[in-house]
């Protein structure tokens, strides 16, 4: 998934979460969690160092909200941290 596509997916998922569309939103959030985990795994040491612990903090926060079925917590985390992470990731991948 490219940057634009991923950002659109984040936006759509957060909308559904704010709307408390539990079933559909959780399905989409599960997909995004898997994508983020793979992105973090695929980062080089250099990229990881550049981003500090930001990616891990985002993932931990998202996972915590996900496990508690906290729709608003997930939506906020996606909009703020996950969107930033995606932009950062693609910027650094393109530069690499």
């Amino acid at each position: 998934m490219g940057e634009k596509e991923l950002l659109r997916e984040i936006e759509e998922t957060s909308h559904m979460l704010y709307q408390n569309k539990e079933h559909e939103a959780m399905k989409k959030a599960t997909g995004l969690l898997g994508t983020f985990q793979n992105m973090i795994k695929n980062q080089t040491q250099e990229q990881l160092a550049l981003g500090g612990n930001f990616a891990l903090v985002m993932l931990r926060e998202l996972l915590e909200a996900y496990q508690n079925l906290d729709m608003l917590g997930m939506a906020d985390c996606l909009r703020e941290k996950a969107a930033l992470f995606v932009q950062f990731y693609f910027q650094n991948t393109e530069n690499a």
């Binding site: 909308h15 704010y18 709307q19 408390n20 906290d70 608003l72 917590g73 939506a75 906020d76 703020e80």
Partner: peptide, 22 residues
Amino acid sequence: GRAWRLNSMQNPMEAAELYADR
């Protein structure tokens, strides 16, 4: 033991509008 926010910490107004749009 967990604090649950009952609106968005990012933009509560926008979150409310989105909710009503459903």
